[in-house]
């Protein structure tokens, strides 16, 4: 720990953040699909697990069995990370009972995650709304103390779980909830390949943005700190790569940004 900050699990990123993240706050990790947001978040949780912290991954985009399989490509031991399956079931079109997620689901350790996908039961289906998820997390946070939480992704939460709610207000209140719960949280946000960032970015205490750029030699990845309240940070855009140990940010001593 450095001046009260916690490490992200990626040393180059910690240097960009001038030591790491100020704990107990929500942060955004944004980037287009396939940029490496989930990988970065998982590394953040693993760093916590290694320090004996309790860590929770809230999966809204992919079923846990796939996340578990995907992480095998890395040389990580993810067994102790807890994962909460917050993927909605297949929607029913007939009037059948809809079970709110808050009444049913418990997080599991990664090691207990089944190899096959959970099937929608025949006569009822789970539906995740932002309200029910918040309730569930609240109960969990009271039961046990989580240090690090990842919401993957905020976009899925907004797209699929806020049907009856006003999006910006609800997002803001959800982030407020995370801040009050005193967990350090990363919220992933999907960006379109071109165009402007969604409003979630303005609400968080900080934003780490991942960029993807194509050129003749393939996909180049870059990382930048767009915003970091309450701390100084590096202004440059740095290149990074995803290897089997995870994300490696190439922060150079001179602070020279890489070529675009």
């Amino acid at each position: 720990m450095m001046n009260g900050k916690i490490r992200t699990g990626i040393s180059g990123l910690d240097r960009m953040l001038h030591g790491g993240l100020v704990p107990h706050r929500p942060y955004i990790v944004s980037g287009p699909p396939g940029a490496g947001k989930t990988v970065l978040s998982m590394q953040f949780l693993l760093e916590g697990v290694q320090g004996g912290e309790r860590c929770l991954f809230v999966a809204l985009e992919e079923p846990p069995n796939e996340i578990k399989q995907n992480m095998r490509a890395f040389k990580w031991v993810v067994d102790e990370v807890e994962i909460l399956d917050a993927n909605s079931d297949i929607r029913r079109f007939e009037p059948t009972p809809v079970i709110e997620i808050s009444t049913e689901v418990e997080p599991m350790r990664m090691r207990q995650v089944d190899e096959r996908i959970r099937k929608t039961p025949d006569f009822e289906s789970h539906e995740v709304s932002v309200h029910s998820l918040q309730q569930l997390l609240k109960t969990l946070f009271i039961k046990r103390r989580y240090d690090r939480v990842v919401i993957d992704s905020m976009t899925a939460l907004k797209y699929f779980c806020m049907r009856e709610f006003e999006e910006s207000l609800t997002t803001q209140s959800f982030m407020r909830f995370l801040a009050e719960s005193k967990v350090t949280s990363l919220l992933t946000v999907e960006l379109p390949e071109e165009g402007v960032a969604p409003p979630e970015s303005f609400l968080a205490r900080g934003e780490i943005r991942l960029h993807r750029l194509r050129d003749e030699s393939g996909i180049k990845r870059f990382i930048s700190i767009e915003k970091y309240k309450g701390s100084s940070h590096d202004e440059f855009v740095y290149p990074f790569e995803i290897h089997s140990p995870g994300i490696v940010v190439q922060v150079t001593e001179t602070g020279t940004a890489a070529a675009a």
């Binding site: 287009p32 390949e193 071109e194 960029h211 993807r212 750029l213 194509r214 870059f222 930048s224 855009v237 940004a257 675009a260």
Partner: peptide, 11 residues
């Protein structure tokens, strides 16, 4: 062009 515009502006 993917993302280039943004990076260019940043740099």
């Amino acid at each position: 062009a993917l993302g280039e515009e943004y990076l260019e502006q940043r740099l």
